Every structure is written in C-alpha cells, then in structure tokens.
Simulated scan of single mutants.
Amino acid sequence: MPRPKKKRKVNNPPKMLGFKPFGIAFCETENIMMQYDEYETVKLVIYDDMPQDEAADKMEVSRPTLTRIYNSALKKIAQAFVEGKSIMIKGGNFEFEDDWYKCKKCFKLIMGIENHTKCGDCPSYNDDELVNLNK
C-alpha cells in the first residue's frame, strides 16, 4: 500500500482565481486546472527567482517532487497559452502556512480573521462575508 502524500506548504493564496485568454471566442468549458502547489512552484522558482532546492525546502517536499510539480505547472501554462484555454487555480494536496480568508464582495485576501478590517469597496463589514481558503 502506498504511503499517503504529504501536504505541500503554500505561503499564501494567489490574488486571482485564474486567467482567461482574450482575442478569441471564449467558452467556459475551455479551461485547465492548476493546483495551488503548482502555482506556488512557479511563483517561487520563476517570480521569486529561488533555486529549486530552496523552493523544495520552503514547500517541505523533496527536490525531485518539486521538479515534478513545477514541470506539471509549466506544461499546463504552455497548453493554455498555445491552445487559448483559461487557467483556473484551485485544489490540490496543500496547506497554507497561515489562515487565509477572502472577502466575497471585494475579493480582498486577509491573513487571519483578526486582521479583517472594513475596506473602502465593501458596503458592509462582518465575518459572514469571508470565505476560509484553508478548507
């Protein structure tokens, strides 16, 4: 029996739910699912310019595991780019380092319920308007 997969550490959720191409007729069913851990590898290795061994340590996975996740993410990005498909970011075997919430009205990211403050774009202010992203 294979051992259970270890959850990958993700520092924080992305600011967006994904990306859509423009300049072509768009169909809602034309999308590619990218998992949070795949997004995190691209962010760490390309955007943060972090060596893969350091990124693997940060995500608490082995270097070969990080490489597999990273290559999967790049393949999905290339497929979306070439085929004109959208990328949706959600799911996967991960856990955030902190408790993260998103406002249902303005989509603002909030680290920890104690940091929830009324923003200028929201007509109301209560904890019912928050979605827990850690679940």
Rank of each mutant, 00 (worst) to 15 (best):
M50S: 02
K104H: 09
E30T: 03
K43E: 06
C119L: 11
N71P: 03
K90Q: 12
Y101R: 03
K105S: 15
P13N: 14
E114F: 10
M50F: 06
K6P: 04
L130H: 05
L130F: 08
D49F: 07
T29A: 10
K7G: 03
E114W: 05
K135R: 15
E38T: 00
C103H: 01
F26C: 12
A73Q: 09
M111N: 15
Y101F: 15
Y47S: 09
Y70Q: 01
G23N: 07
L17A: 14
D128M: 08
Y70F: 15
N31W: 08
M59L: 07
T65G: 04
F22A: 10
V10W: 01
Y47K: 09
L17I: 14
H116C: 05
E83K: 11
L17T: 15
N11H: 08
A55M: 00
T67H: 14
V10K: 00
Y47W: 09
L44W: 00
N132T: 07
P64Q: 06
F107P: 01
R63F: 08
V61M: 05
L44H: 02
E83L: 09
F96S: 04
Y70R: 11
S124D: 15
I110S: 03
M59Q: 02
P21S: 06
K76R: 01
S124N: 15
T117E: 12
F107V: 03
E97V: 11
F22K: 14
Q79L: 06
D127V: 15
M33P: 01
P4C: 02
E40K: 02
Q52V: 12
K58H: 02
G92I: 05
K6Q: 11
E38D: 03
P123C: 03
T117D: 09
T65H: 07
S62P: 02
C27H: 15
H116Q: 09
Y36N: 03
F22I: 13
V82K: 08
T41G: 01
I32D: 04
R3E: 13
Q35L: 06
H116N: 10
V131A: 14
S86C: 10
E38C: 03
L66H: 05
Y70C: 04
